[in-house]
Design a binder for these strands. Structure first.
Length: 281
DNA sequence: CTAGGATCCTGTCAGC
DNA sequence: TGCTGACAGGATCCTA
């Protein structure tokens, strides 16, 4: 799914269209995609992000927690269209369609929540309870808030796990998903199967630095998921094209050493590495 | 407590 | 063509 940079791209992009705007009603097409009462008539006050979770605060004391998981998308259709999240044809398709799970009717347009695999959801919470929500509570710090020594401690605690599994776990460090985990490890020249306990402080520092750099670069380019203003300026996110060094680049040459990028399986996930740069220890 | 695998669901693609 | 299994930008639950 959408990882931290994509959710941040959605947060920033949607703000332009729905802040201070009123939700007139909600239509739920898939029961499992919506948790809580469906009667909503309130204005959007704020958009916040915790790790990969988006929080939409309303002016009636309620908040909506949106988690896109693997295939979620948020698509705004007003005068302009703004789409972000898991990239697909839906970004330009007529909506609603088969993958539309929820539609918000705003005074100035519609907001579609699409989700092919139905792993994502929107949950209604009391605004005061947002930070007590189990998923939010369990989140670790984001890379920018975490120190090298904190991450080193976490690696020690999970010393027998492959480092990729450690950095994918939101309870250890928040925001990374499959793309940015691969990119951060490539940056640090660390093999994803390396047992976390074998990493020295310098390597941990490079992983942290890599996580910050790849995610910052992605946010700056509108996420890897192609956020697109269909009727506006043509802006689109293109992190994968422009910046990704290994993700979905198997068979291509490593930009650092010219070695061949390969795809392997680590912690149950497709994983991209340069075997020459990221030596297994 | 940690570690690892199955599971939720729909769709696509490679291989026979 | 039609089938089958693997896999997918996530996280939880269950087991050992």
């Amino acid at each position: 799914m959408p990882e931290l940079p994509e959710v941040e791209t959605i947060r920033r992009g949607l703000s332009e269209f729905i802040l201070e705007k009123k939700i007139m009603g909600v239509e739920v097409f898939c029961e499992k995609s919506w948790i809580g009462p469906k009667e909503i008539s309130a204005k959007v006050k704020e958009l916040r992000r915790f790790g990969k979770a988006l929080i939409i605060d309303l002016d009636n004391g309620k908040s909506l927690m949106v988690h896109l998981r693997m295939t979620g998308q948020m698509i705004w259709q007003g005068e302009k269209r703004y789409a972000a999240g898991h990239p697909s044809e839906n970004f330009t398709a007529e909506l609603p369609n088969k993958q539309t799970r929820v539609v918000f009717e705003f005074e100035n347009g519609k907001l579609f929540f699409n989700d092919q695999r139905k792993f994502g959801f929107i949950k209604v919470l009391e605004t005061a309870e947002v930070e007590k929500e189990p998923f939010i509570m369990s989140l670790a710090k984001e890379p920018w808030q975490m120190s090298k020594s904190e991450l080193f401690e976490i690696m020690q605690r999970h010393k027998n796990s492959p480092v990729k599994a450690v950095i994918l776990d939101q309870k250890n460090i928040a925001g990374l998903g499959n793309i940015y985990a691969d990119e951060a490890l490539y940056y640090a020249k660390v093999h994803p199967e390396t047992r976390a306990g074998k990493l020295n402080e310098k390597e941990v520092g490079l992983i942290l630095e890599g996580a910050r750099k790849v995610m910052t670069a992605s946010i700056d380019s509108g996420g890897s998921t192609m956020a697109t203003y269909v009727k506006a300026d043509g802006t689109k996110g293109d992190y994968l094209e422009k910046f990704a060094q290994v993700f979905r680049r198997e068979g291509q040459k490593c930009g650092r050493c010219g070695g061949k990028i390969v795809k392997i399986r680590v912690a149950g996930r497709g994983t991209h590495i340069c075997p020459k740069c990221q030596e297994k220890k």
